[in-house]
Structure formats: C-alpha cells, structure tokens
Simulated assay, not measured.
Amino acid sequence: MRALLLLCFVSLSCFANQDSKFLHLSPEIKAGPQYGTGITGWGMQLGLADVYQTNSLYFNGGQVKYEFLTDTDKWKFYRLGVEHRLVKEEVISFQFELGVIDYEGERRFFTRKETREGVGFSSAGAVVFNFTPSLGVRFGLDVNVLDKDKTYQTSSTFINVNSGVIFRF
C-alpha cells in the first residue's frame, strides 16, 4: 500500500507547477461530535501544491475518539481533497474532500460488552485564509454518514468542527 501511495505521489508531482511551492502539509484538530466533548480527534493533510490548476491536491487521514458514559466511539477517516483559490480574491480559498469512514463502537455494561463496526461516507469542507504563499489557516466541518444500525451514536450523521494550519514548501 505504501508503494502505491508513493507511486501516485511521484506521478502527480510531474504535473505540479515547478515555479511555485511543491508540498502541501496541514495538521488539524477536531472538536465534537457531541456538545462538551472538546478536542476529540486529529488529522493530517499531505499532498501536492499547484496541481491541475488547483491550489492543492491532497490526501487527508486521521481519527476521532469519543467517550460518553458507557459508550466509546472511534472512527478513522480517509479522504481525497482539493483546495481551490478564488480568482479575484487570492487570500481566500476553499477545500472540499470526499472519502470513507471506518467506525468502531463499544458499549460496556456491568458484566458484558457489545461492539459494532461499519464503513460509511465521509466529506469535509473548509475555508482557508492564506497569509503568505507558504502559510495559511483553515476552518471547516466534517460530515460523516453511517448506517444507524452499525453505530451507537444517536444519529446516522455526525459532524465535527476542524481547524488546521497549512504549510507549503
């Protein structure tokens, strides 16, 4: 799998604009999915800058873990995303991502433990404020959809708020 990702990264680098920044790197933190949970997850965007007439083309992966009373929910997400800068306003750009979510849930009672697992749809969007060509910040939302019967969440759709810093090298 690592070899395939490396091959895709190298092949896409041929399309990158050689006069500008090459690497897109953005760590992120996530809050949610329930009120009062605080910082519950992390993620990392890694990709190429200035590819196919976009600001960045990247892979985003990470996880969120949430514990409440008897329930422990953990999901990992894997998404492909694109960042596109506005034509008239170069300071602001938008990101959009699509991918999958892998859910694992556990409910503990006094003497027994139940588990649920499932795979669902994951998407995200963010607004990016570019301070310089090499530095920006982003704020956005993740929307994850999973079959209600495969989760301990009260809804089949759960949303996280995220923020991150973007570095371009």
Rank of each mutant, 00 (worst) to 15 (best):
F121C: 08
N144C: 12
T132C: 04
R108T: 14
Q34N: 13
G105A: 09
V82Q: 10
Y58P: 02
L12W: 02
K74C: 06
T154D: 15
T132D: 04
R116G: 02
F167Q: 05
Q53W: 01
D147R: 08
R85W: 02
S93I: 08
P27R: 03
V137Y: 07
S11C: 13
Y78L: 14
Q53L: 06
T72Q: 10
F131Q: 12
L141E: 15
T40F: 05
T70P: 07
E89S: 08
F169L: 14
F167Y: 14
D73M: 08
Y103D: 07
F167H: 06
G43H: 01
G81F: 08
Y58N: 01
A31S: 10
K88F: 12
F169P: 08
V165I: 15
L98M: 06
G43C: 10
S122H: 12
F77V: 10
R2M: 00
D73C: 08
F94K: 02
L4F: 00
A124V: 09
F59W: 14
R79S: 15
D149V: 06
Y35D: 08
V145E: 11
G120R: 01
W75H: 15
S20K: 03
E83K: 09
G61W: 11
Y103E: 05
V82A: 13
G164I: 10
V128Q: 06
M44D: 07
G41S: 06
K74Q: 11
G164S: 04
T151D: 03
T157G: 08
T37D: 12
F94W: 10
R107M: 14
G36A: 02
Q95G: 11
A49R: 08
